[in-house]
Design a protein around this nucleic acid. Structure first.
Length: 568
RNA sequence: CGGGCUGUGGCGCAGCUUGGUUAGCGCGCUUGACUGGGGGUCAAGAGGUCCCGGGUUCAAAUCCCGGCAGCCCGACCA
């Protein structure tokens, strides 16, 4: 490709709204352009990289026995009403964009469980056709509240998504493992360090699921990692160790003392009140009045220095809830006699020590100290209700865990019959002759996000440094001083033709611009191998070879075999 | 959805506080000359509804009101 004809313009300065390196460099290098917030165009260079990523994905999924399809991006709204997920649009559980057309209402598909279930379901009628896994690479739409970081979080994105169909749960788990392993191979080929972690299933549904996290300084997620045993889980889903600690309320401990604590509803204010007594937030018992998923009032206890992490579907008390439960006083809540008031008590494992605790007195402007677990309050159920922090005990082996900042690059789910049991065509005739629902899995990988992740990991202060497998071109050929030296232009043209004839993907900088511009653009675009034809080398019949990644340089005979001009 | 910041040629910005000739600068773009191994020099050009609407005023990029858009923090998020 002649650069003089390529649709690319490099920018000396990054746009003001680009914060992270991948965003800045992809825009500066002319790979992508923003059309609207979270909506990007891929220019030729960007599309080439994207295609290379897609090729790796398709190659591995094909090898794993998956079949590629292309499903519509425009979905009839009825499909989403059938699955019940249309109703969730209102609560933003799965933001989708609606479109009104002549044929009725549609959504721009944010994900394809509904469509694939009815599409594959219509074709598969017998267990003999199973197992079956299909995948597609196509655009998805998410009405993100806050797109950011260039391609890392967008409203329109390219995704590779696979769906497995099996006769029963055991077979589904085998298919899940197959795709899971293929995903690991894909990440390895992309040169990315990935950690599969246990995660929450969110709006997709199903039981077992894993997120594939790529550690990155620009990630928006954290996962819990235990170096000792390999346990890894998203902070949203991570359990915490520490269950079973013996609780031995000391009968000789002093009785509780009530303190008048006017206008001190928060943890910090209470700590300040007790500042003379060496009290820290960890000595306080944080009591949160919440409504659980089934609408019952629950008191959640956790150490005062911990942030709460409520199960999905639970919400904090609002004013009307406090009005309905006068035994709980907002700002001064405590667990004493909660059960007597018909409120069950759940506690984070961090509360599994006797105390003494300081907590609310269930009386406005009053707190209680000397509160002991087992004597003054009891817990109905233990769980992990606090956000994990580094140094917490691993739930599997008890060693200290770390938190790792990372980007979610893929997410796989064991769906079971969540969709097949409600969508048209979700059943087949099983071996015993009875009708059964497909046992499904789904597997999503953010292709355009991966482009940004790779760019984020592969760059230096001058520009991008693409891995050979993903680079937009194999070779970047620079002709220096062509305006002054027809001989150089001639020699470079000839070399370009030879490379093309040999099947090499070459980007040929034939522009009449100064050498500095060509070097700077070559560094910015990040093609792995740079070849320079200039007057100096031409006189000696050599071409200069340079590795973008290592900076290694050498000379090669201009007339030598093409192979000597490529790899190291 | 809350809080904050910002909208001025393609990009990056100044000007606005204290209204007043023709709205500037750098990059980029066009033409020409020079130059020719790390974004080179000189000269001449093109390119603007100063986000939109309303108001104040003799006069608004500038002041006031209302929108819209973008970005950041938070909430939310397969």
């Amino acid at each position: 490709m002649r650069m003089s004809r390529l649709l690319v313009r490099t920018l000396r300065e990054a746009p003001a709204d680009a914060e992270v390196a991948s965003h800045q460099l992809l825009v500066r290098g002319g790979f992508i352009r923003r059309l609207a917030s979270g909506v990007y165009s891929f220019l030729p260079l960007g599309l080439r990289v994207l295609h290379h990523i897609e090729d790796v994905i398709a190659d591995e999924l094909d090898a794993a026995g998956c079949q590629q399809v292309l499903l519509p991006a425009l979905h009839p709204l009825e499909l989403w009403e059938q699955s019940g997920r249309a109703a969730r649009f209102g609560t933003d559980a799965l933001p989708a964009m609606q479109v009104e057309g002549r044929g009725g209402s549609f959504v721009l598909g944010p994900t394809h469980e509904e469509v694939v279930t009815v599409t594959v379901g219509a074709e598969v009628e017998s267990y003999r056709q199973l197992p079956l896994t299909v995948y597609q690479i196509q655009v998805k739409f998410r009405d993100e509240a806050r797109p950011r970081f260039g391609l890392l979080r967008t409203r329109e994105l390219i995704m590779a998504d696979a769906y497995s169909f099996d006769a029963d749960k055991e077979a589904m788990q085998a298919s899940y493992r197959t795709v899971y392993d293929a995903y690991l191979r894909i990440f390895a080929r992309l040169g990315l360090n990935v950690s599969p972690v246990e995660a929450e299933s969110g709006a997709i549904g199903g039981d077992v699921n894993h997120e594939f996290m790529v550690p990155s300084a620009v990630g928006e997620d954290y996962f819990v990692s235990c170096l000792a045993c390999g346990y890894a889980a998203n902070v949203e889903a991570a359990a915490r160790g520490g269950f079973g600690e013996s609780v031995d309320p000391d009968a000789a401990a002093p009785a509780t003392v009530e303190h008048h604590t006017p206008d001190r509803p928060g943890i910090e204010q209470v700590v300040a009140f007790f500042k003379d007594r060496d009290v820290t937030a960890a000595d306080l018992l944080k009591s949160l009045a919440v409504v659980d998923a089934s609408g019952r009032p629950v008191l959640v206890l956790l150490p005062g220095d911990r942030e709460a992490r409520l199960p999905s579907g639970w919400r904090l008390f609002e004013d009307e809830d406090f009005a309905a439960h006068p035994s709980l006083v907002k700002g001064y809540i405590g667990p004493m006699e909660a059960q007597a008031a018909g409120i069950s008590v759940v506690a984070d494992v961090g509360v599994a020590r006797p105390g003494p605790w300081i907590t609310g007195a269930n009386r406005a402007h009053h707190h209680v100290s000397g509160v002991l677990l087992g004597r003054d309050f009891s817990v109905d159920e233990w769980g992990a209700f606090a956000q994990v922090v580094p140094g917490d005990a691993c739930p599997r082996c008890g060693q200290k865990v770390d938190l790792v900042r990372s980007v979610e690059a893929a997410h796989t789910f064991q769906l079971g019959t969540v969709y097949s049991s409600v969508m048209t065509g979700g059943s087949f005739v099983a071996e015993d002759g009875d009708e059964a629902f497909f046992s499904m899995g789904c597997y999503g990988m953010g292709v355009s996000r991966l482009l940004a992740v790779v760019a984020e990991e592969c760059h230096d202060d001058r520009g991008l440094v693409w891995p050979a497998a993903l680079a937009p071109f194999q070779v970047h050929l620079l002709a220096l001083g062509t305006g002054r030296s027809p001989e150089v232009a001639e020699a470079a043209d000839a070399l370009h033709d030879r490379l093309v004839a040999a099947g090499v993907d070459v980007l040929y900088d034939d522009r009449d611009v100064s050498p500095g511009v060509k070097f700077a653009d070559a560094d910015l675009i990040g093609v792995p191998v740079r070849l320079v034809v200039g007057a100096k080398g031409l006189a000696r019949g050599i071409v200069e070879w340079r590795s973008r990644a290592t900076g290694e340089e050498r000379e090669a005979a201009l007339a030598g075999p093409v192979e000597t001009l490529l790899g190291p």
